[in-house]
Amino acid sequence: CEICHEVFKSKNVRVLKCGHKYHKGCFKQWLKGQSACPACQ
């Protein structure tokens, strides 16, 4: 996960249209302050 830098250990992964992958919880937190993929912006 590019947000928390932890390895994906479960199926709790969100894959965006751009192809980047994040933990669902991390991405949900990210969206509270941002509106785009962290890696693409």
Rank of each mutant, 00 (worst) to 15 (best):
K9Y: 01
C26H: 01
V13P: 08
Y22R: 01
V15D: 08
K11Q: 12
F8D: 05
C18A: 01
K21D: 04
W30V: 13
N12F: 10
G33D: 09
C26Y: 02
K32M: 12
K11W: 05
E6H: 03
E2L: 07
L31P: 10
V15T: 08
K24A: 13
H23W: 00
A36H: 12
G33C: 08
F27Y: 03
S35R: 09
V7N: 07
C40S: 02
F8P: 05
L16R: 08
Q34L: 07
C4W: 00
G19P: 01
A39S: 12
V15Y: 03
K24P: 07
Q34A: 11
K28G: 14
Q29R: 14
C40K: 07
F27V: 11
C18S: 00
H5D: 05
K9M: 03
I3E: 03
Y22P: 04
I3G: 05
P38D: 04
L16P: 06
K11Y: 03
Y22V: 15
N12G: 06
F8N: 05
P38M: 11
I3Y: 04
W30P: 10
N12K: 15
I3S: 05
S10E: 07
G33L: 10
S35C: 10
C4P: 00
E6V: 14
K11H: 10
F27C: 06
W30T: 11
C4S: 00
S35T: 12
G33E: 15
S35Y: 06
F27H: 13
V7I: 09
H5Y: 15
S35H: 09
C18Y: 00
K28R: 12
K17V: 12
K11F: 12
G25H: 13
C26S: 01
G19T: 04
Q29Y: 05
C37K: 02
F27R: 10
G33P: 06
E2Y: 11
G19V: 01
G33S: 11
C40H: 03
V15L: 11
K21N: 10
G25V: 05
L16V: 04
K32A: 11
K11P: 06
E2M: 05
P38W: 06
K32P: 12
A39C: 09
A36M: 08
C37L: 01
N12S: 08
K21A: 11
R14G: 05
F8R: 05
A36K: 08
C37T: 03
K9S: 06
L16A: 15
Q29V: 08
C37E: 03
G33W: 06
W30D: 11
Y22I: 14
F8W: 03
C37H: 02
K9Q: 02
H5G: 08
K28V: 04
K24D: 15
H5K: 15
K21H: 06
C26M: 01
A36T: 11
V7A: 11
R14L: 05
K24S: 13
W30C: 10
V15Q: 06
E2H: 10
V15I: 14
K11C: 06
K28H: 10
Q34H: 11
G25K: 07
S10T: 06
L16C: 10
G19A: 05
K17E: 12
W30Y: 12
H20L: 00
Q29I: 06
P38T: 09
E6W: 05
Q41T: 11
Q29P: 09
K32F: 05
R14Q: 04
C4M: 00
A36G: 15
L31W: 09
V15A: 06
C37I: 01
K32N: 11
K28W: 08
Q34E: 13
G25E: 14
Q41F: 04
Y22L: 14
C18P: 00
C18K: 01
L31M: 11
C37S: 03
L16D: 12
G25W: 03
F8M: 14
S10L: 06
S10P: 05
L31V: 13
K21M: 12
Q34C: 13
Q41G: 13
E6C: 10
S10D: 15
H5F: 08
N12W: 03
S10G: 08
E6K: 15
H5N: 13
S35Q: 12
H20I: 01
Q34T: 11
Y22D: 03
K21L: 09
N12D: 09
I3P: 01
K11R: 03
H5T: 15
K32I: 09
Y22A: 15
H5E: 11
F8G: 08
V15F: 07
G25Y: 08
A36V: 09
S35D: 13
N12P: 09
I3Q: 06
P38C: 08
F27I: 11
H5I: 08
S35W: 07
C1M: 01
K9H: 03
C18V: 00
Q34G: 14
H5P: 03
G19D: 07
C40G: 03
E2T: 15
P38S: 10
C4K: 00
L31N: 14
R14K: 10
V7T: 10
Q34D: 14
K24Q: 15
G25N: 15
K11V: 06
S35G: 14
P38R: 08
Q34S: 13
G19L: 04
K28Q: 14
C18L: 00
K28P: 06
K32D: 10
E6N: 14
Y22E: 04
A36I: 15
C18R: 00
W30I: 09
E6L: 08
K17G: 13
N12M: 09
C40A: 03
V7L: 11
A39F: 06
L16Q: 12
K28D: 14
E6D: 11
V7K: 11
C4V: 00
C37W: 01
L16T: 10
V7P: 07
S10R: 05
